[in-house]
Nucleic acid binder design. Structure first.
Lengths: 344, 344
DNA sequence: TTGAAAGCGCTAACAC
DNA sequence: GTGTTAGCGCTTTCAA
């Protein structure tokens, strides 16, 4: 574990010590052919002995490839994003890529800053769960031909782009079918921001499926929160307060934290789930399996979203040909537990 | 959003277009002094117009600074590590550093690979939650003067090193004090690998505090798992199977997933928590607040571990002087819920 | 206040 | 098989 001060730190040092040229040493470092076996061994031995570590920064400068993918998310602690990152990493690590993280804390401004930073860093591609409503920076990146894959939320862009996400409209349609299948007709819904495509499509699926089934929706049963727990709680409180005028037997809450908030509001009001009110959640994660009651929930195949994203990235990074953009829509699924019951 | 093909992509382009030298342009890009105000404005305008994006790769090659911190963890999806990453990122992002992730999947071999990869990438520093028992690679990094901060688990190294973690021995002493305070005397314990310092110190604190209190420990009540849920389940099954010979009223489970496994084994055997057996967990995270019963648990101040790690990193990265290594031991705490009851 | 030039460590023609 | 050399885009003396 000796330290060889300033020797053995670069190709030139190794080359000099061996009386070889840098290109020959470079060839063996990169496993190229056209090197005499004997020479190769000598070089390898020197590399080992002097603990030579190739400099990827120099290599990147020369080759214009950093083997780095920037992943920008609103909040890395949210299970959805953590799983997504894991899925992407699983796939791209096999090809030698690494993820560099940008956690925006839901701030469009920070998102733009990360976009700038990662451009300067020359990441090979970007994965973006955008929270921005003015995607100018994004647009310029795409125009400048850096591969960008969108996940979760889509940008309001007129040009085409790559994306991997679930069919949010379908998710809500499934929610309606599930609840109406349990004979519910008066269904409340708590949404996140409808300014984002995610929220917009979840509302769309809900409304359209309800009307297809000929069920009138009481607009007083549609509430908007901000994805956070407190807003789920508040929305639920409002719903409960006006329950005599606007009755409902089930509530569909379209995000994980809002679902927890809603559950607590119900419990707080001395009501029981599912006996008094059925709750259908979204993105609920119960790692412990010890929540009571277990919450029936729409789920996204997060790890697959990550894996598909990773695969799409690899494809965009290797295909020389200008492939046309694609939107990969995965299917959500319902994880049935105990929070919804059949009306008699 | 025009695309300026091969113009405006580097300092030289900008310099040429303006009839200036690269050094002058470089000065304004870096906000240096000694540039005439008029020149500065002209350059800034050109940068804007031609959408010039500085190349950090080239800058890094020149300055030997990548503004990148490698964070290597066994499993990014574990709440502990996710929170850790968030804490680190919060601090270092303010100084322009970014995190590049290495998820080893608990494999010492992958850990070594990431150590190699991140060395080649020339990360400025490393954060390492090691799973390796032969830290040769780590040692050579430290010797080569790249700052390394250890978290969670410590390496078996004879030289000194920086680390931020909780006092695991203290955690177990607190566990013993809490349970004995509830009049428990026969306390079972389920541990992870004792080969790792984390597990070793948790056992140490338990044993030493028990004997200080004059309570004999039945060694049959000490079980070893592998941190995963299944092993918690299996250990608990064993404990329950021999309960008539080796009775116990409480069990202290030293990891999150093993705690869930143990809970399920107890429920599976038709027993209740805490009426029949008290369960004291470790690292249990209940984001929903809807687990029933709520599990009383030892907790680590994860985000602080992350923040302290970030601060230590920044210090090591800015202090020219060779500072002596430090081990920052944070205090664990008990989050009391309903899974432990007082014996009568 | 500005410019010329060296060089960070590497890859890849191209020549021998 | 191996060596020479020209950059990749930038920072930074040093000189003007």
């Amino acid at each position: 574990m000796e330290k060889h001060s300033n020797k053995g730190n670069n190709l030139k040092d190794i080359a000099n010590m061996l009386g070889l040229s840098v290109s020959t040493v470079s060839r063996v470092v990169n496993g190229r052919r056209y090197v005499k076996e004997e020479t190769r061994e000598k070089v390898l031995a020197a590399i080992e002995k002097y603990n030579y570590v190739p400099n990827d920064v120099a290599r990147s400068l020369k080759t214009s490839v950093t083997k780095t993918i920037g992943v920008i998310v609103p909040e890395i602690r949210e299970t959805f994003f953590t799983q997504l990152i894991k899925g992407i990493d699983d796939v791209i690590a096999k090809s030698g890529y690494s993820i560099i993280i940008g956690d925006t804390g839901e701030s469009p401004q920070r998102e733009d800053e990360y976009l700038d930073l990662f451009s300067r860093r020359r990441v090979d591609a970007l994965v973006l769960a955008t929270v921005s409503s003015e995607p100018n920076k994004i647009l310029s990146l795409i125009v400048n031909e850096i591969p960008v894959v969108f996940v979760d939320n889509l940008p309001r862009l007129s040009i085409s782009f790559d994306a991997v996400l679930i069919d949010n409209e379908l998710a809500s349609r499934m929610a309606v079918d599930y609840l109406t299948g349990l004979s519910h007709r008066n269904i409340a819904i708590i949404l996140g921001s409808k300014a984002e495509t995610t929220g917009y499509n979840r509302l769309l699926g809900f409304s359209s499926r309800m009307s297809e089934l000929g069920i009138a929706t009481d607009t007083a049963l549609i509430k908007y929160g901000d994805y956070k727990e407190a807003s789920g709680f508040a929305c639920m409180e409002e719903l409960l307060a006006s329950r005599d005028v606007h009755p409902f037997s089930a509530v569909y809450v379209t995000s994980e934290l809002m679902t927890y908030g809603a559950m607590k509001a119900i419990i707080n009001n001395g009501l029981r789930v599912p006996d008094d009110i059925s709750v259908l959640g979204f993105d609920v994660h119960d790692r412990s399996g010890l929540m009571r009651p277990g919450i029936t929930t729409l789920r996204q195949p997060e790890e697959y979203i990550g894996r598909y994203t990773g695969e799409l990235l690899i494809k965009r990074l290797s295909d020389a040909e200008e492939a046309s953009k694609q939107k990969i829509l995965l299917e959500p699924y319902i994880d049935i537990k105990e929070s919804c019951k059949k009306l008699d």
